[in-house]
Computed example of a mutant assay.
Amino acid sequence: MATNALGPHRDPSTVAVVMADGLPLLEMAVPGRIFGLRLDQPDLPRHTVLAVTVEDASITTSDGITLVPPHGIEAIDRAGLVVVPTWHQPGSIAPPERLLAALRQAHRDGAVVAGLCLGAFVVAAAGLLQGRRATTHWAYADALAATYPDITVDGAALYIDEGAVLTSAGSAAGIDACLHLLRRGHGAAAAATVARALVVAPHRTGNQAQFIPAPIPPAAHGDALDDVIAHTLANLAQPADIDALARRANMSRRTFDRRFSARTGSPPLKWLLTQRVLLAQHLLESTSLPVDVVARRTGFSDAVALRPHFRRLVGIPPQAYRQAFADSGDPTKPEHRVHDTSVSQRVRPALRRPPYGLAGD
């Protein structure tokens, strides 16, 4: 899926964050912290974050802290990414029509619109989620589905990326969603650099995957399930039979599936495919190995077998991903190019992708 071409008056590096009176500070602060972080690294992308107030005046957070956002709703017209980080309880205070109109116009102009936590209700009210999948805070997923029956609501998802529109679960999930958008626009290392600076995990799997240096928390010694996970991660190139993994954990298949899903957030096969694609991303970024070799080293028979899974999770084909996010280095030494998550990737100009969007073939 690709977003529309961005309108000429919109800046792909400008992020508008919608704020309103009575909302929690944490949720409103997350986008600005992710996209506005300044580090002494020249390759880290620079964004201009616009704090936009719905009230056109000072606001008071739910914790009693007074803020004075310097921009009104009209500033949304300049942004390539618009984030509604949260909103009031469903059924209480409706979003103003001029905010909804600004979101619709942003969408028409090719900007990405993100509704984090209860902000998903605002994006839905603007009509931008019709016929799409979406998520929100788990406690309000049923309310979102009941209010907007034309939306396929997944209350279990951490975030759902529909290309031009993204929604996320509550509170800290906004960090994951914003890091995902950063990665989507600028590569794995840029997101990892920001995550490291903020001392948060580089990624928790949502609807769309990213490279995870340590995707599973450290295992307790002697835990059979965690031993299986560690073994599988260390042998992604090898054929993996889920029944065999269950036997390795000394569990029935049904118990294994249930405990594995509780431990990782995904069924075993889905998790395995995701980890293989994540490793393929890493190899595409950090080596110049042929795609067929990358496929075999990540458990796929060849590039043809890798491609549909890679495209489904990442949004673009493997070769296009490499063109956008490959490290610079000596292409004659594919085995000696080091992936360093402390240094951001260089986005090559050969692939002109929409801001935070997913390029097509």
Results as ranks from 00 to 15, higher is better:
residue 100 L to M: 05
residue 257 D to R: 15
residue 235 N to M: 10
residue 288 S to L: 05
residue 234 A to G: 14
residue 258 R to S: 13
residue 274 T to I: 13
residue 136 T to R: 10
residue 147 T to Y: 01
residue 7 G to F: 08
residue 361 D to Q: 01
residue 197 A to Y: 14
residue 106 A to F: 06
residue 53 T to N: 03
residue 169 A to Y: 05
residue 226 D to R: 06
residue 65 I to Y: 08
residue 309 H to S: 14
residue 42 P to M: 13
residue 257 D to A: 14
residue 78 R to W: 04
residue 34 I to V: 15
residue 14 T to Y: 01
residue 17 V to K: 02
residue 199 V to P: 03
residue 17 V to L: 02
residue 317 P to I: 01
residue 258 R to Y: 12
residue 232 T to G: 06
residue 71 H to D: 03
residue 134 A to P: 00
residue 326 A to T: 02
residue 113 V to F: 02
residue 264 T to S: 05
residue 159 Y to P: 04
residue 25 L to C: 04
residue 252 S to F: 04
residue 142 D to H: 14
residue 281 Q to M: 14
residue 51 A to D: 15
residue 314 V to P: 06
residue 356 Y to V: 06
residue 15 V to S: 06
residue 167 T to A: 07
residue 80 G to R: 00
residue 143 A to M: 14
residue 158 L to N: 12
residue 246 A to Q: 11
residue 94 A to Y: 01
residue 130 Q to K: 10
residue 342 S to V: 12
residue 238 Q to P: 02
residue 160 I to P: 02
residue 126 A to M: 07
residue 253 R to S: 14
residue 144 L to I: 11
residue 165 V to K: 08
residue 282 H to F: 12
residue 287 T to F: 06
residue 219 A to N: 11
residue 310 F to K: 02
residue 41 Q to C: 12
residue 70 P to H: 08
residue 208 Q to N: 13
residue 315 G to M: 05
residue 235 N to T: 15
residue 134 A to C: 02
residue 294 V to W: 01
residue 248 R to T: 01
residue 341 T to L: 11
